[in-house]
Write a protein that binds this DNA or RNA. Sequence first.
DNA 1: GTAATAGTGTCTGTGAGACAATATAAG
DNA 2: CTTATATTGTCTCACAGACACTATTAC
Lengths: 240, 240
Amino acid sequence: MNETEFLKEYDPTAFQRPSVAVDLVLLGIRDGWPAVLLVKRDQLPHVGRWALPGGFVGIDESLDAAAARVLREKAGMGEAHLEQLYTFGAVDRDPRMRIISVAYLALLTEQAFDAALGAMPALLPAAIQVPWAGETGGPVTVLSPEKQELTLAFDHAAILATAMLRLRGKLDYSDVAFALLPELFTLRQLQDVHEAVLGAALNKPAFRRRQLDKGWLAATGAYEVGAAFRPAELYRFQRH
Amino acid sequence: MNETEFLKEYDPTAFQRPSVAVDLVLLGIRDGWPAVLLVKRDQLPHVGRWALPGGFVGIDESLDAAAARVLREKAGMGEAHLEQLYTFGAVDRDPRMRIISVAYLALLTEQAFDAALGAMPALLPAAIQVPWAGETGGPVTVLSPEKQELTLAFDHAAILATAMLRLRGKLDYSDVAFALLPELFTLRQLQDVHEAVLGAALNKPAFRRRQLDKGWLAATGAYEVGAAFRPAELYRFQRH
DNA sequence: GTAATAGTGTCTGTGAGACAATATAAG
DNA sequence: CTTATATTGTCTCACAGACACTATTAC
């Protein structure tokens, strides 16, 4: 029996299968705080609760492609840093049926965040409060624009907490911070992003030194316009 | 319509579903090198190639439970550090059908590694060579006990590379190194594990200082026996 | 000039690498 | 005593935090 014959006889319906979905944590920085875009559930279960945008994975669609499709369809966006986060597979995480969810983290610039809100008015921008520090992680709080604490559907609070832990962990050794900033930015803006993600103030001279020493920043020679006082130089992210 | 009625009417067969499997990277340190336990495929596709032990996820089984079951059934083991690694979901990663694989990293002490080999003689202990350094990652090489380079089945080489990257990344801020060591160990053994994982020599006094300053080590007052020369003190892993 | 922020210089403390010195056990 | 490794001490260097100083722009 060669491989072609084998494949013909293989029975792909031999056992019951779970459904597989992707859920997206659409993350940006708004008003100095991390924020996430949520959709209101209009169906049971958890009807009326806020949830992460998601969708089922097509049978001929890779996980990354499914995440990119949900990003387009549910968030009206083409461009964003997208990375796989973790796969949530508790048996009872969805009461309808067995659904395994592969969570993705999408990082949005402030412009992309606002553009998504414009394209999809049903999206809610919710502020994220992270009460813990360090590598352990823990629960996070989600606040509506009216400062009401929201209870997320399913295990989406745990997914969001995982996203914040990942983002904090990668912040200073990877380039994720630049995914939250526009093409051109000042060092102050870069520091603001770091401080918002970490939830802590940073020392300015030390921050500048460390960022410049990394060699990931290219000075443009251009300066911000419209600043009330001395305008800062604009930098661009550029490896090495 | 309340939630119970809704669930009754929900059609769980509405669309085609992928299969979901778990694959385990059973990792230990042997002769100062990282090593992985492999199984030989006796079926098409990729018959005769070496693969990571794996199994399908049951419809009433969480991902973690499936990984623990595979650990028991395919590796004859009950105890090991087990953590989810990454989910591999390319459409064509398995020619039989669409299979999404949730990879797990299992860390074995040298005793557990040998016990698994004893319990499951079909397992092959293969040495892992990691040619890269730093956070980027890249391909790894797998060598049989006869020093022959092995080609792994499916995308298992990529899974193994992901495992090595994760292990290196977590080595000095987490407790993974202790999962590779017995209950009682010397500082030299701890350093050997770090050096094997990192593939680099470390400075002894600096290593000792850093480990002791972390506060994760409890001196036992006992010393190793049978050492050819001065015996080292035995330590135990203990948080804070 | 004043206000407010951008950007730089310098001191200090912490921690890692390098290297040497001391301690200890087997034979 | 010799050998080989465990364990400790010390020097130096790199780097981050703290803090003050200079630079620049709007008004």
